[in-house]
Design a protein around this nucleic acid. Structure first.
Lengths: 134, 134
DNA sequence: ATATTATTTAACGTATGCGTTAAATAATAA
DNA sequence: TTATTATTTAACGCATACGTTAAATAATAT
């Protein structure tokens, strides 16, 4: 049997979602770990409402998901979700078949990136500062 | 030394280009080999002018390139270009680092796709019918 | 209950993108 | 040259996406 592929039309939505610079910035920001909506908006340099709508788009395509923090139920974090990225990778591989191998090249590139990342000041994974009333 | 990365803002253009269904259909159609603008338009079920503008977008991001046929200089074919897809794959790998490896999973998926493709009626690689005047 | 903080939804204006038809270019063929 | 076919550009109308500010929700904390 065969793994259930995400419907192909979803790829259009995924690509369109990632096609907006603000949303791509949001995704890149979330690479460092789950973050709150406000933080993401700040990181992308735009208002909360604007980012909120972008997050809705990303949520709809399941590129991100929300998670609750048990320490402080008030706080909602967004994190990257694996599946759509995997689907996109799969599609890219399909297209890449056009040139023959390419699998080797991709693997090589990926590893060079990993190499670069080693020791490249990535910020710590979302510490939530519990607000102590002033 | 390090391989020259395509400027990151190009990724936005690449993703936006692929984000349009018509353009993605065009790309998928070109997986089978170089084709003429008109064929692509037909395959996508839209007028020539409409597809022409989409092709311009794809050309601008270098997702496709044109090639001339020496047999018949009149005919211009479009074909997929490797680099932008590789850049996108690289970016996806970067994002995927969020979940740890994933490299294995991707490779596995790619191979399963290759497996599926084996013997799945792909049309022949762009035979140009030289027009014999009626 | 009332206040505080975070996030989402509503309303608005602007801009950009898309498809169509009609006209302009390009490149031969007769 | 003139005609023919393929493709691109121009002009138009329409819809949708984006960002902003202001108002509405949610969920505590006091």
């Amino acid at each position: 049997m065969r793994m259930e592929n995400p419907a192909p039309e979803n790829l259009d939505l995924i690509l369109a979602a990632l096609g907006d610079p603000a949303r791509r910035r949001a995704v890149e920001f979330l690479k460092d770990g789950p973050r709150r909506a406000g933080e993401i908006a700040d990181a992308a340099g735009m208002s909360g409402p604007a980012m909120s709508r972008h997050l809705r788009v990303l949520r709809k395509t399941r590129l991100i998901a929300e998670e609750r923090v048990e320490e402080d139920a008030r706080i909602k974090l967004y994190r990257l979700e694996r599946a759509p990225f995997a689907a996109l990778s799969g599609w890219l591989e399909e297209v890449s078949a056009f040139w023959g191998d390419n699998l080797q090249a991709l693997k090589a590139h990926a590893e060079s990136v990993v190499q670069e990342e080693k020791g490249a000041g990535k910020s710590p994974p979302a510490r939530i500062a519990r607000r102590s009333r002033p």
